[in-house]
């Protein structure tokens, strides 16, 4: 067996070793992505609200 095949073979335990590492990276990556989109969604919502506030203040000053 060449070294690369034997590396992926993991002494016959490849079917247990590789999924462990892949699942770990996928779960940690997904949690990071979820946290980032949670933050971005909040920032977008806050910005929209602040822009609306500025707009209504402008209207109020126009009326005055």
């Amino acid at each position: 067996m060449d070294p690369i095949t034997s590396f992926f073979h993991m002494g016959g335990y490849g079917a247990y070793v590789w999924p462990s590492f892949v699942i770990t990276l996928v779960v940690l990556g997904a949690l990071f992505a979820n946290s980032l989109s949670f933050l971005r969604a909040g920032e977008t919502a806050l910005k929209e609200l602040q822009d609306e506030d500025v707009a209504t203040e402008d209207e109020a000053s126009d009326e005055a």
Partner: peptide, 20 residues
């Protein structure tokens, strides 16, 4: 790292809630 991100997200979400 993720805790800091989520804490910032919680603070921003709290501000959004307060404005609404």
């Amino acid at each position: 790292w993720v805790l800091l991100l989520r804490l910032r997200a919680e603070i921003v979400a709290g501000k959004v809630r307060a404005v609404r």
